[in-house]
């Protein structure tokens, strides 16, 4: 066994290295989980096919693939940042994993940053795979919309990570599992993710437009179909991220 470190010196590697290592660890955890892969890759691909080869999105864009792909990318964000990450964190909390890692140099901040890195890495894999799929199916996104859409994917990832942490840190993991899965289905169907909120009855549109899911879905469609930057959606996502982060910091229970 090696010698004892001298007094007062730190034996921790640099914060950047700790976060990178934890990000890699969390990414492997996420990608080695079967249910997670179904949620992250298989379901979005099915949604892409279903929406492209039916007339559910008729009139949203000139061709159905162009109408479908942006919403499916929004769905990827919710799958990974919210549902997958939320369930993982909920069970980590149950098994004391969060407590164990907070006794290492990683600490609570390192744990959170590690999760954010994992979410972004998995999301990048999803976006590449879905984009390749969609391009093979004839998708023609507006090139000027690509940069704005990356901005919205990042804003959405931040917002839904905070929401996922808020739920995972406050209720039992079984409840987190139920809530985040149910929310995933509801938001995908009627929360403005796959279908524009303008397809809903007028009286409910105001409410739907206040949802972060609608902000994400509509902004990606605006960027990739019309090449425009959806400013109200950006504001909406930032506000939701702020509220969810504040609540998560205040209410998150580590054990």
């Amino acid at each position: 066994m090696s010698a004892t470190t001298s007094d007062q010196t730190s034996n921790a590697v640099s914060p950047l290295k700790r976060i990178t290592l934890q990000g890699k660890y969390e990414t492997i955890q996420m990608l080695s989980n079967g249910e997670q892969l179904v949620l992250a890759i298989v379901m979005p691909v099915i949604a892409l096919f279903a929406l492209t080869f039916t007339d559910l999105l008729a009139g949203v864009a000139e061709r159905t693939i162009d109408a479908a792909a942006p919403g499916v990318l929004a769905l990827c964000v919710i799958s990974t940042a919210f549902t997958g990450q939320g369930i993982g964190t909920g069970f980590d909390r149950r098994y004391g994993v969060l407590r164990m890692f907070s006794t290492t140099p990683l600490g609570k901040a390192g744990l959170i940053f590690g999760k954010v890195i994992a979410v972004l890495t998995v999301l990048a894999v999803q976006v590449v795979l879905i984009s390749i799929c969609a391009l093979l199916m004839g998708w023609e996104p507006r090139l000027v919309g690509i940069l704005p859409s990356l901005v919205f994917l990042l804003l959405g990832a931040g917002c839904f990570t905070a929401l996922g942490l808020l739920i995972a840190g406050t209720v039992r993991p079984e409840a987190t599992l139920a809530i985040t899965n149910l929310a995933w289905i509801l938001l995908a169907g009627i929360g403005g993710v796959l279908f524009p909120t303008t397809m809903a009855p007028e009286w409910i549109q105001l409410l739907l437009n206040a949802l972060p899911s609608a902000g994400l879905g509509d902004s990606l469609r605006a960027a990739l179909i019309d090449g425009t930057f959806h400013i109200p959606a950006a504001i909406m996502l930032v506000v939701w991220t702020g509220i969810a982060s504040f609540a998560a910091v205040k209410l998150f229970k580590w054990n």
């Binding site: 730190s10 921790a12 098994y95 004391g96 164990m100 006794t103 140099p105 990683l106 600490g107 609570k108």
Partner: peptide, 19 residues
Amino acid sequence: DKPDLRSRVGVMLQDGGLP
């Protein structure tokens, strides 16, 4: 959160806390 302090302290929790 005290990374430098934590780097010199090892903890084995009763429930283990292993993933």
